[in-house]
Design a protein around this nucleic acid. Sequence first.
DNA 1: TTGTAGGCGTTATCAC
DNA 2: GTGATAACGCCTACAA
Lengths: 342, 342
Amino acid sequence: MSAGARPTLRDVATQAGVSPAIASRVLNADPTVRVREETRERIQGVAKDMGYVPHSVARSLRGARTGAIGLVMHGLDSPINVDVLAGAQAACARAGYVTLLADAEQLAGDHSQLSAFLARGRLDGVILHSGYGEEDRLLEAITSSVPAVLVNSEDGRPVPTVRVDDAAAARLATEHLIELGHREIAYIAGPEGSQTSDRREAGYRDTLARHDLGGAVDVVHAGWSAGAGTTAVHELLRRPTLPTGLVVANAVAASGVLSAFRDAGLAVPGQVSVITIHDSWFLQHLSVALTAVRLPLQVLGATAADLLIDTIEGRSPVRDVAITEPAPELVLRRSTGPTSRR
Amino acid sequence: MSAGARPTLRDVATQAGVSPAIASRVLNADPTVRVREETRERIQGVAKDMGYVPHSVARSLRGARTGAIGLVMHGLDSPINVDVLAGAQAACARAGYVTLLADAEQLAGDHSQLSAFLARGRLDGVILHSGYGEEDRLLEAITSSVPAVLVNSEDGRPVPTVRVDDAAAARLATEHLIELGHREIAYIAGPEGSQTSDRREAGYRDTLARHDLGGAVDVVHAGWSAGAGTTAVHELLRRPTLPTGLVVANAVAASGVLSAFRDAGLAVPGQVSVITIHDSWFLQHLSVALTAVRLPLQVLGATAADLLIDTIEGRSPVRDVAITEPAPELVLRRSTGPTSRR
DNA sequence: TTGTAGGCGTTATCAC
DNA sequence: GTGATAACGCCTACAA
């Protein structure tokens, strides 16, 4: 063993005067092995002295596991998505897994990146953050090589699914506006095809219907970005009359909504009330501190990780999980108030 | 080979009627091998038909490389840091590396997480996002096992270093306020011990000195969070007089600064001008659209990745890189204006 | 032009 | 109690 090279198990064994087999079992605390206390201590001492570190690659070649989980995310420019990432990453780390991070768009767009990521033996499983684009092709490539969990998708998919209670969050937001006296409430949606946005829209429609306001349903398609929120407002401003309340599907888009109203000289909540879904640090610093429904996004990521790890380790997991604990929670700030009209 | 199992190189070779050696060389496009065109096509055809995917673990056990780079980050709750992450991740992916993501605090606080991450054979190198805490212990553990690059640190470290031109950014910010007529300009610093903040502070001091304002140096220690910015303002408000201009070390902290002024009923920029360093999507949506100096953070991450990859692949890299291209750039919004006082 | 064999570092099986 | 040995899948001298 030369100076720079790390010692192998064989080096340790030789140095301790035992066979590699014994050294391996002692260092892995194999409960079925019976060795003299003295031998055990000698081996452990030598390993420590030589700075022995097990070779994870050799280990996973022998066994079948790698101790690594892939996180395929998108939209990391939004803090909302980063929350999910952070929750998943932390849960994996707690369970002893390292995490490989990839960007869904990059992976879908570059075949060689995808195969590097899914190379055999690299990953024990993948958490796929469900967006609204290339998802299906990606999902197929992934599931054909390792177990996967889908975050934020509808259930009834070929793989287990985890999501927060988007409908309940939207209901809570809509109820809040109704309680304040609003009757003309629009929903500013996410991008077309987003299941997350669709579930929120369903909650919004539900709530209007339950209050006999089903005829007032008013959905404006926008997107997840601040720019999309701004565009949506410009669209509203072209109408003869404005809704008095807005449920915005996402906090980043809501930022753009608020700025657009500020630039148009409309008072929030004086002329329009705005509430959004997702809470984040920046909401209280916007042009008007933004009222929101808090959703447990870190828990979402962590639950996906736990579910995947259960699958990997052979504990049979539930299939589709809708997270209800902690429940969506109203975070009151200054962007909603009683309606002036009617 | 059973139904579920993926085919191995040997399976492909057998099926194609050749030896594993030939199959390996053909599939890896070994330029020194000379095979009949027909044989080559047969091998490639069989590999494709069987869905052969090389086993990355076996490959890296044989060779020494794993094709994986570790990203040790901190503060992913701030979009500023996420920008660096995204730049590094994308650059690694472009170069054919997968990325392992870990959180610096978690790694420093949990020994078993650290050894799982640094397990032999797992990583070809590590990008360490330099913070202000556990960095040194972490750095030692990392560098003793793989090549590393430090992002955002001073140079003169035992490993190569990459950073943006923090001093120039602070100079630009300070100059801007001076040009607007401000003479009492405070610097709202990051946390104690942050080298990034120190470099910005140096730029600020420089600029004051160059304008014969050296006596007006006024540094308030805060931190990177919005809360820290708010606290710093509260501290300022206890003074008999306020500075007329503020250079805030970081855009997240600056959010808290603006909110604190709003809550205190002070007009920005009427009574105080505020400029910050780092641009991000949320700045234009704050209570006052925030003027900032844009710094190329994605480029920072990407440069760190490129530098590390050069090291790994044996191209001798420069040691310490200060990124000057693109240069820091002033992004004018509404939070700075001529001073009313003096 | 193609094949054989050895070994990367581990761990599981079986024998002593 | 402990040790030899084989195998995981791949790559690459060297041989034919």
